[in-house]
Design a protein around this nucleic acid. Structure first.
Lengths: 217, 217
DNA sequence: TATTGTTTAAAACGAACGTTTAAAACTACC
DNA sequence: GGTAGTTTTAAACGTTCGTTTTAAACAATA
């Protein structure tokens, strides 16, 4: 209760970052929406960069934890070995649902998270990407290892790229979801939800993961 | 020759936009790299927004033209009807090669183009996306129509989303290519090129396009 | 050559940004 | 109740940005 200031800043920052990006969102609009003094951001987070990192950590921390437990449960449960297609869908479904669960439990915006990953990777010089890989890279290695079991044989390098192709489906769609959902509603009079999108994406990712390698590297 | 100023600005802007994004790139660095006076941007392009639009039009104009001719040739050549998988690869290969050709012929950066599309869609309120769809949307409808012929039966809405899933593979990978290529070189001592990435992506996109619909909308 | 229209040049403007500062307000503990 | 530590407040700082302005340089025409 003492420092609801911090939470209010994080909540407002998340919303604004999701709507307008990191650079185009000023600390003044964040602190204004949070009903908090401007200096509070620098006092509690050190800098704007620190705030951005805090917003990401507030999502990625629970996400990696959630993902880890669900993947452990997946490995424990010795199910009948199905086809690779099904296994891939199960694994990617775990990832998708993990994102959704963490987002819902902590009242986070999935879009801002996707946007964050997107901008983190787009900036070749981005310090954020390095922070993310340093901090959470290991946690995702486990997932990637499980995933690779059911994918066509390929080199580490090829898998690296393939994984990012799959990531692109997720990240681009979710980070563009606001615009796409609006278009969809106007064009097709549809009221589709992000949850449906997440469910739709899983088999598409699984299919993309299974595409066989052509030529050699 | 009289206005090489315009071209020098466009060239420099493209490079800087690709490297640091649109918001983080100042007109001062652009005009400095272009060896042009600061005021030249506002004189020739009206505003920074006008410059961004000019950079995109310089790519999308030739691209749509190139794509149109190649697709017409594709439709004219009455080849033996192959499987959907092959046809999809042909069509998506045309798109990929069209992007590469236009980029190479006009000395454009594929990365900045992908980044542009990425940010255009990420900003739900973005005027750039509306400009792009208004200006070039019709040209891409034709491509989408051809593509859909060889995809599983689905509603217009489902196809809309599926198409953007495929787009995500392309856009995310290319706009992150700078960072990913650097990681790849450091981690796997590989000197992969963007051209190879583009070729790799095609069958993955084709596979994603073919994933069958589950459940109903 | 004089004139007109176009392009470049240098300088400044006003606004918005992240950050810092210094005092005030608040909290908790002795 | 006074005191030490923490948080909040209001104001200002210095920078950088996109844009504008005014004049100079240039180009083309008659």
């Amino acid at each position: 209760m003492t420092s609801s200031t911090i939470d209010r800043i994080l909540d407002a920052a998340e919303v604004e970052f999701a709507a307008h990006g990191f650079v185009e969102t000023s600390l003044r609009t964040i602190t204004s929406k949070a009903k908090v003094n401007l200096a509070a951001v620098n006092y509690h987070f050190g800098s704007k960069k620190g705030l951005i990192q805090a917003v990401t950590d507030r999502f990625l921390g629970p996400l990696t934890k959630n993902l880890q437990t669900q993947l452990s449960a997946y490995e424990m449960a010795l199910t009948e070995t199905q086809g690779d297609e099904q296994e891939l869908q199960v694994l990617l479904g775990i990832l998708a649902r993990s994102c959704q669960q963490v987002a819902q439990q902590n009242h986070h915006s999935l879009a801002v998270f996707a946007r964050l990953i997107n901008t983190a990777y787009s900036q070749s010089q981005g310090h954020l990407r390095k922070h993310l890989t340093k901090q959470y890279g290991a946690s995702f290695m486990y997932f990637m290892k499980l995933l690779r079991r059911h994918m066509p044989p390929m080199t580490h390098e090829q898998f690296f790229w393939r994984f990012h192709y799959l990531l692109g489906i997720l990240v681009f769609s979710i980070s563009s979801s606001e615009a796409l959902l609006a278009i969809c509603e106007r064009e097709y009079a549809s009221s589709r939800s992000l949850d449906q999108i997440m469910a739709d994406i899983v088999p598409v990712m699984a299919s993309a993961a299974q595409a066989s390698i052509i030529g050699d590297s």
